[in-house]
Amino acid sequence: MIPERLSQAKSFGCEVVDLRQDATMQDMIEQITGSPEVDAFVDCVGFEAHGCGHDHGHEQPATVLNSAMDLTRAGGQIGIPGLYVTEDPGAEDKAAQKGALSLRFGLGWAKSHSFHTGQCPVMRYNRALMQAILFGRVDIAKAVNVELITLDDAPRGYADFDGGAAKKFVIDPHGMVAA
């Protein structure tokens, strides 16, 4: 949970939920929307997820998907662009090292949720999104806070990003953009 990233989301009109608070997610969402459920849920975290509130320090690879089933309305859909893996040598427990997660799948079944996994097939969308950019319908570089760096600065980009910088580092290897 990184405060700068939340302010970045606020900067273009998102409401934000700060998981460091010791309140249930349902309560935090109800305070914003008037309902403890959401219509749609998108997991952009993946397997390196951490617990909420007092559990925040610990890695819990299933926590986002379990929250998705808690929070999404019955019949809702869950998009999962976040990465999940078949091997995770750095995981905290044996099951997670093989990509096996402790999911409350019965809840998702009971609520008729559908789950959408896998790499995004980029070319299904890239032409339409290019047009949205070229016709000024979206300021995506601003939304993700692009910072241009040189190729030689890439190691610093990796280190800053790992430290939680609320930035998207874009390398300009020939100095053709900066020029």
Binding site: L6, A9, C14, I29, T33, V45, A49, G82
Partner: peptide, 8 residues
Amino acid sequence: IVYIAGAG
């Protein structure tokens, strides 16, 4: 109303 987990 959409909940997006992760603000990276």
